[in-house]
Amino acid sequence: MKHPGPLLTLLAGLLLGLLTLTLDATAGTSRASSSYQVKPPSPAPTSSTASPAPAASSPSPSPSRITDASYAGRTDDDSSSVAVSVRGGRAIAYFCDGRSEESWLKGPVPADGSMRLTGGHGAALNGTLRDGVRIRGTVDLDGGHYAFTAPRAVRGSGLYRATATVRGAKVEGGWIVLADGRQVGIVDREGTPSSAPRVDPETGAVTVDGQPLTATPALP
């Protein structure tokens, strides 16, 4: 009878080898599973130097426009009259006491309604157009200082002017017609002023030294 020792030893060695291979395979699978990680997708790169969208620019406001109109009124001391005609951002004014004191002035009128008009011999008118219905200001002339208010002229009132040659002499006349129908004017004959005859505000007709003339609205 043969001894089973060697055969059992061989079988035991085979079983041990199979067991070792099985354990190695299991361990390898476990290591492979634990070492494999799913990486999350990288976020899209952002540019730190991206320029912001330009802000929408609002349109610049249009400057207001002074309405073309005429204004006529009296000084606060009721000694004289002042009339101003505004056209196209410019103005012409006339100061007159109806006897011997007069001055023509002119200058620009900014969008805010302020005005500084100048005339001969240092004459100056400083005023402000208020709400488009009146001009409040002052006139400085020959050392005198006159505050005035000139409401917006109605039909027939306002500032009139006539220039002509009468009997060989240059004649220049200025008239201020107020809303109540009163008139103040001076006719200058070669540097000699005197009270002006009445003018018809509807037609501008006036007679100076026997000669008919036509006065027209004074414009800048």
Rank of each mutant, 00 (worst) to 15 (best):
S35G: 08
K39M: 15
G132D: 09
G127C: 07
R136S: 12
R152V: 11
R155T: 13
R134S: 12
S85D: 06
A93V: 05
S51E: 14
G185H: 03
T67P: 02
T216R: 15
T128K: 15
I66K: 00
E202A: 15
I135P: 00
V184Q: 06
G181P: 05
R161V: 10
S60C: 00
A25R: 14
L16Y: 12
G120T: 14
T149H: 02
L23G: 14
L11R: 13
L23C: 07
G158I: 02
A164I: 00
A162F: 00
T46F: 07
A93M: 05
A25E: 12
A53I: 09
T75N: 06
R87Y: 07
S48N: 13
P151A: 09
L129M: 04
S64P: 09
S100A: 12
F148K: 05
D131G: 07
T138L: 03
G88E: 09
L117M: 08
I186C: 06
L117N: 08
S194D: 12
E101T: 10
S62A: 14
A164L: 00
A205Y: 04
Q37H: 15
K39C: 08
G119W: 02
A32K: 12
A50H: 13
S64L: 07
I176A: 03
V177H: 02
T138R: 09
Y71R: 01
V177A: 07
S48F: 14
Y36H: 14
C96H: 05
D112F: 11
V38M: 11
A215K: 04
T214N: 09
L129Q: 03
A56T: 15
K106V: 05
